[in-house]
Design a protein around this nucleic acid. Sequence first.
DNA 1: CTGTTAGCGCATTCAC
DNA 2: GTGAATGCGCTAACAG
Lengths: 349, 349
Amino acid sequence: MRSTLKDLARETGLSVATVSLVLNKKRHKIPTVTQERIFTAAQNLNYRPNQLAVSLVKQQSMTIGVIVPDISKYFFSEFTLGVEEEARRSGFNIILSNSMNQWELSGECLEMLSGRCVDAIIMAPSSDTTHDRLLKLKPVIEKSHIPTILIGRDGGELGCSFIIVNQSAGAYQAIKHLLDLGHRKIALLTGSLNLSNTQERIEGCRRAFEEAGIAFDPSCIFEGQYDYDSGLIHAEKVAEAGYTAVFAFSDTIACGVYRTFIKKGIRIPQDISVVGFDNVPFAQMLSVPLTTINQLAHTIGMEAAACAIRESSVNNIAAGVAKKRIIYDPELIERESTCPPLSREDGFC
Amino acid sequence: MRSTLKDLARETGLSVATVSLVLNKKRHKIPTVTQERIFTAAQNLNYRPNQLAVSLVKQQSMTIGVIVPDISKYFFSEFTLGVEEEARRSGFNIILSNSMNQWELSGECLEMLSGRCVDAIIMAPSSDTTHDRLLKLKPVIEKSHIPTILIGRDGGELGCSFIIVNQSAGAYQAIKHLLDLGHRKIALLTGSLNLSNTQERIEGCRRAFEEAGIAFDPSCIFEGQYDYDSGLIHAEKVAEAGYTAVFAFSDTIACGVYRTFIKKGIRIPQDISVVGFDNVPFAQMLSVPLTTINQLAHTIGMEAAACAIRESSVNNIAAGVAKKRIIYDPELIERESTCPPLSREDGFC
DNA sequence: CTGTTAGCGCATTCAC
DNA sequence: GTGAATGCGCTAACAG
């Protein structure tokens, strides 16, 4: 069995209290000799405080719960890495749970983490979490009395802090980049239109067009899923409809586009430019490195952890502290999949 | 504050013990009326047992620690997903920690998880963990008295169960596939030669050649790192040296190869066939879907969790139970990046 | 059937 | 300077 404080006390002939005092370096003026006696005993018995007991008495577990839809997806694994890195710097550990892309499960995770007495929760709602469903989680979060940080959703109504990347701004940058290059006929290969992310990105596209004095033609929207096949399929139509550029709403979609274009002999970017979204690692490894929008997953993870830790401590002091709302602007990563249109004539590329 | 058993006892006018009994559904023949009284009170006060306290008294935390080098890498995130899925089915949760690819940190993680009283640990050593360094972790593991499952390394010497994928068999399949297609001049684009994985894979290659009655020519080995640039660079030499196929030791390396080949106008697979290793998601999304070796990350994760749970329970009953050694054979995923050689002449492809 | 008692391992007053 | 006592929230014997 593991050794306990009691064991150390017996071993040194001191009391549990003294041993605890010394090991926790409380300034109680204890003679150095006694201290050393304790430290060596701790060494010998391989003593390691039982964090469960510590947490119980300190009313603080030094853990933060992380709920993601699916850790195998790049954004979330990179995000989680950021969370863990930052958390560890402050001595926190993380309990990870996947909601398996089902919003009901996020609720269960929330309750389970609450039972485990995590000091804070960082939750990235699954994409099937509609506004209504999100609101249903509100009482769960409130009753848990645990500071919760929402990722990718406006947590205002839920009364919790949140971190979002400005989807609209990301899309805006993508379109602006293409417009600046001279493109006018740009296809939007979106994910499902009833996802908030999709809507916001379309909004950003619209803004870019309008600021450039170009009417936004909704027929440029090709609705699909955020997957490879969507890109594969819609790229066919795009090619035939005379578009000179496509903005794929995810790098995975862009991959499908690549495949179709290559198969049809359409050159990227000479014939058609392509912009993606996410900046997954393979974006730069494609046959033509993909110009895309970086979502800053790692940074957001670190920020979320910092926020969680801050709120967990103030939570112990004064309850109602101002909730944070952090909004990141994603960044355009220019690579080789974009160039001015019609370059096959002027040989620009 | 959260409500406790004591609150429920006060509310119902019963004792803490009775409430606990009912809530835990122990068969103590308690009248239904009393039960309902308790249940509704629990409902009203939003009671949720404090798992820290439960763990402390039950001497079982229902958590398992997971140590991976870097969760942002696909293999480990997919693996971790498998672990969590399986663990949750049995009511376990996971504490995740990244060793940041530094073996010393795995040691620290081990100790931290021990302090948190996890019931079992699943550890995937970082690639810089040499045999010597792995042995240095032995005392740490032993003194923790926590059943530990090693992933990707033979845990025999450490006295713990382990799950490995047979790297040699994977490489064997890749080479055999190419040999069967008729290739004879096959380039091996490896990772660092002092990694055990690399060595085992080379061994598998050698075996495939020899079984086919072909002498293994070590000059076909192009040592690099397990990264994109290695593929990029070595592909140049490969093309000039008359190889008809390349076996890249990771899909990422294969990606680099793709890039170079495409740039040089070398067609895949008509001019040169390519086989990868890992079966990362983007392997099937490349311009030419990549034939590769599937490492079964998800399956291994689930198996690891099952193993961990089993050992954590027997650990409480009888200490020295037989350690498991599980070896998976990876599988060849045939896609479109391979075909018989010289097909440019006979138009086979 | 229900309540009392005794810890789980630790931190923290408050006496001595 | 050090130790005895108390309690964190809960379970599990054992009484009654």
